[in-house]
Design a protein around this nucleic acid. Structure first.
Lengths: 316, 316
DNA sequence: CGCCAATATAACCGATTGTTATGAAAATCG
DNA sequence: CGATTTTCATAACAATCGGTTATATTGGCG
């Protein structure tokens, strides 16, 4: 026999409250409504749910058993209301983000942790990828946000993007690299050392190629590639290799004393770090709040870099 | 925001089934019905529950979260239906029984275990008491069944009773008792030994008194009283004491080789073991089935006793 | 015995739920 | 690429349900 879920919930409220009147109040209903519900239920079941002629109201064993089930429904219902409410204000939910590996590892992971200080009930699901993967994932609604460098001109699709950081690459090396001893290292010096290549498909790899070509290099000594950021860092700690990295990534790792930037200016890529999302995406307040957090974190980072550069003498 | 539980359940069905049509079928509803439900839900929430323009239907994160809650409701609902169905046929439920200690310990406990071989989902709640307690408990709907000796004439109340065993007491003693050596022990011999008294308030105690009085005893040596059946048995194992007990109780303990009955006939009490219940009690099929089980168990026991007595020579 | 509180009943109305019929959009397939 | 088929959305309508207020009954208690 199918029982109306609402009826079970009312029964649960009455049993828990110990009376029809109180139970009705608990649900914000009138007493007759609940009273009738109980009558109907008893009628349909053909079994009494309460011991007759007894006040305080005493449920029969069957009544008690059914009330238990109603109780779990009531709990589920309240939780559902909570999820909705939480979703509305971005307090709960899941944010699925994708991004390029270096930025995610060096910067975003920490920002996620920070974000969850104020949003402990928001879960973050992270994936890695480059622009084309991320765009596809966004369109397939597999992620809510993408964080990656994009060509500034690129536009016109059904993706909305907000620039959060202008592109700026540096040549990175281990903190004991011999080139750091030189007063004024020249671009040509770079060709004397082995290179670590950023992961295939990454914009950084294109930047690396074009930079080296602009320095007149015909051939590059690639000694290592394909590693994650942590691999690259550990590699560079012991090898006198060079690589190209986003400025902020190197900056954010400055306290590790593992890698640093060479004081050589290289061309800015025509590219900016941006947050992408579908323009027609379903509202996802938690994702919006997370995006805001990332933006403001980068804003702070930018100020920090500015102050840092005023106190430290960088290249030229 | 309050959400209609039914809507959540429909949502859950659709998400689980992977489509509106299949979800509707799962619930035995028409497709337009649940389609409209989903529209209403999205309208009220102001949030989409499914990613538009995509088939197979893909829920949004919010939709998935809400569907989870709906799923637990659906499960609870099914369980509730099961409870009702089980209750109807006596397959599930709680049976609250009360009875006199000796019968419960010696006979009923084993019958309960046996009963639950065929009714594993029926829980038995047992309490102890004598007739007046049990009657009160029945009237207060604290127990569903009482199993106790009652005076045969007693009637007329709002209790229904079914006799399951005529009253028959024996004098019990330890298996090493000296009186067992005697060819034909006489009632007068009984006065030479110390006695264990049944618990105060028990019918057995009254039987003991009247029996001893009928033997011309002016005073009885009570050495021990108040113990449960197990206490009495253990006491009698080592003391040459006597006590009075229902015949079936001693009989059911025959394999323990701890106590036995003296071959002395004593008066039958004007009393019978019966199952009592309220005539106006709520239907409790599980209790009914248990009562049937107890009755048939006693029936079997009676036959067993009869066969036993034909092979063993009892007193006189 | 009579009052008070709690529950049951009655009468009414609007919202909701179900139905069938049908249109629109998407996927499938030749 | 167009036809077909499947699936979802919409429309219109009937019936029931679930809510309300007003009122009668009932059980508990001084």
């Amino acid at each position: 026999m199918k029982i109306d879920e609402r009826h079970l919930i009312q029964l649960a409220a009455v049993v828990k409250a110990g009376g029809v009147t109180e139970g009705a109040a608990l649900l914000g209903l009138s007493q007759p409504a609940v009273s009738r519900t109980l009558s109907m239920l008893e009628g349909r079941l053909g079994e009494p749910l309460f011991v007759k002629g007894r006040r305080p109201l005493q449920p029969t064993p069957l009544g008690r058993a059914l009330a238990d089930h109603g109780q779990t429904m009531l709990a589920a219902s309240r939780k559902a209301s909570d999820t909705v409410e939480g979703f509305r204000v971005g307090r709960t939910g899941v944010v699925r983000i994708g991004g390029t590996p270096f930025f995610m590892d060096a910067l975003i992971a920490g920002m996620i942790a920070e974000f969850q200080n104020s949003h402990p009930d928001v879960r973050i699901d992270q994936t890695y990828g480059y622009f084309s993967d991320l765009r596809a994932a966004l369109k397939a609604d597999q992620i809510d946000l993408a964080i990656c460098p994009i060509d500034i001109l690129d536009e016109g699709s059904d993706l909305e993007f907000q620039e959060i950081l202008p592109g700026r690459n540096v040549v990175a090396c281990g903190v004991t690299h011999p080139l750091l001893m030189k007063r004024r290292p020249q671009p040509a010096d770079l060709l004397d050392f082995p290179w670590v290549a950023p992961p295939p498909g990454s914009p950084l790899l294109a930047d690396l190629r074009s930079m080296l070509l602009s320095f007149g290099a015909t051939e590059i000594k690639i000694r290592y590639s394909g590693g994650s950021l942590l691999s690259v860092i550990n590699y560079m700690k012991t090898a006198n290799a060079l690589t190209i990295m986003p400025h902020t990534v190197v900056f954010s790792l400055r306290n590790e004393k593992a890698i640093t930037a060479l004081p050589i200016n290289i061309a800015h890529p025509e590219r900016a770090l941006a947050i992408l999302k579908r323009v027609d995406a379903a509202r996802a307040p938690a994702a919006d709040q997370f995006a805001n957090h990332v933006r403001s974190s980068f804003e702070k980072l930018r100020h920090l870099i500015k102050r840092h550069e005023q106190s430290v003498v960088w290249g030229n």
